[in-house]
């Protein structure tokens, strides 16, 4: 999983994410964010996805793991509304701040958690379809969810 020539070096990555506990295993996920790709760990031997990043495949113990972009489609599995919380750029708790754990279409049980943008809280519910989108936070691309155009549940 060496960085390609168009990608940031480890040193650059550490500088861009200066408040994150980066390590040799999770750095590939964070590097992907700078390219607006949500790259989750996938085993190139057995095809199993997992998150959060681990050094071996929990399914077959292979170390041939590749940070692989997901399609970015899925279904809201868990949903909360924060009426208060830690300070973050662009987050105003005067309107409760949604946080959704989304089950990704790639694999049952594979989930990624972020906020949902562009929707009234009243329109959010477990079971609704969402798509990955990107906003800027702290000067870097940041992955978020947006209700899918069809908006339908499944």
């Amino acid at each position: 999983m060496a960085a390609t020539s168009t990608e940031e070096s480890d040193a650059e990555l550490l500088e861009r994410f200066d408040n994150v506990r980066l390590d040799h295993i999770n750095k590939h996920l964070y590097r992907g964010l700078l390219h607006k790709e949500l790259r989750l760990s996938r085993c190139s031997d057995c095809g199993w996805w997992h998150h959060r990043p681990k050094p071996i495949c929990p399914n077959c113990w292979s170390k041939n793991l590749v940070a692989t972009p997901v399609a970015g489609t899925g279904t809201i599995h868990l949903l909360i509304l924060l009426h208060q919380g830690p300070p973050a750029e662009g987050v105003d708790y005067s309107t409760p701040h949604p946080v959704a754990t989304v089950e990704l279409d790639e694999q049952e049980g594979l989930r990624f958690t972020s906020t949902v943008v562009g929707a009234d809280n009243d329109d959010l519910e477990i079971g609704k379809r969402v798509e990955l989108d990107w906003i800027e936070r702290n000067g870097k691309p940041y992955p978020v969810w947006r209700l899918a155009n069809d908006g339908g549940g499944r």
């Binding site: 994150v20 506990r21 964070y30 868990l78 909360i80 924060l82 830690p86 946080v99 958690t113």
Partner: peptide
Amino acid sequence: GDGFGPDTVGGAVGYTA
């Protein structure tokens, strides 16, 4: 420090989720 600020269900927030 996972870099996701409030956008997590980690820790005690997990029970709310």
